[in-house]
């Protein structure tokens, strides 16, 4: 019975990861199993998008808001600047003392629900979003280069099936031998 409860708790707390892992594996399976170069790239896209989902589900906070602060731009100047100036000095000394390990005493890890509120509001974690924005861009860059290669491969080989390409390359190698 208790193991049943534990399993249910595990499942409700982790179903998102399980689904995301399934999707990742679907993408990876497409990449490896297909010999068609365009479909390979589609698979790569599915795989990468699933990784994005892993990051984003990780950063979700139940009951949280999107990480856009409420009512900041009016009050951003007054007391704000002071903290920045102080921080600036602290950072400058860090940078100046070469050879010392990272100083990170100022950041504490939140332990209670009160710690995670920012001006009384609960937000989702912005950092995974930032990382994934970067990763999406890298993904589309790779895709563009990959598709450009596919087009050129088709022009010079007349096919985009991996098996036929290997065969053509093998024939070519045999041709140079004799």
């Amino acid at each position: 019975m208790s193991s049943g409860i534990e399993f249910w708790q595990y499942l409700t707390g982790h179903f998102n990861y399980i689904v995301v892992i399934t999707l990742m594996m679907t993408g990876l399976y497409i990449v490896i199993s297909t010999g068609n170069l365009v479909k390979k790239l589609v698979g790569l896209g599915v795989f990468q998008t699933a990784v994005f989902q892993l990051y984003i589900t990780m950063g979700k906070v139940t009951g949280g808001q999107p990480p856009i602060l409420e009512g900041v731009h009016e009050s951003a100047t007054g007391e704000a600047t002071k903290t920045v100036a102080e921080h600036g000095e602290a950072a400058a000394t860090t940078a100046a003392t070469h050879g010392e390990k990272a100083v990170q005493a100022t950041i504490s890890i939140a332990k209670t629900m009160d710690d995670v509120l920012v001006d009384g509001v609960l937000y989702s974690n912005p950092l995974p979003h930032v990382l994934i924005l970067t990763a999406i861009v890298v993904g589309v860059a790779t895709l563009a280069v990959g598709l450009a290669l596919v087009v050129r491969i088709r022009e010079s080989y007349g096919t985009i099936e991996e098996d036929e390409l290997q065969e053509a390359n093998y024939q070519h190698a045999k041709g140079t031998l004799s």
């Binding site: 409700t12 707390g13 982790h14 179903f15 998102n16 990861y17 589900t57 990780m58 950063g59 979700k60 906070v61 139940t62 009951g63 949280g64 950041i107 890890i109 939140a110 332990k111 209670t112 629900m113 710690d115 995670v116 609960l122 989702s124 974690n125 912005p126 950092l127 995974p128």
Partner: peptide, 13 residues
């Protein structure tokens, strides 16, 4: 899922 006190959500983020 959704834990506000998990390591990724309670530190740098």
């Amino acid at each position: 899922f959704g834990d506000p006190l998990s390591a990724p959500n309670a530190y740098i983020g």
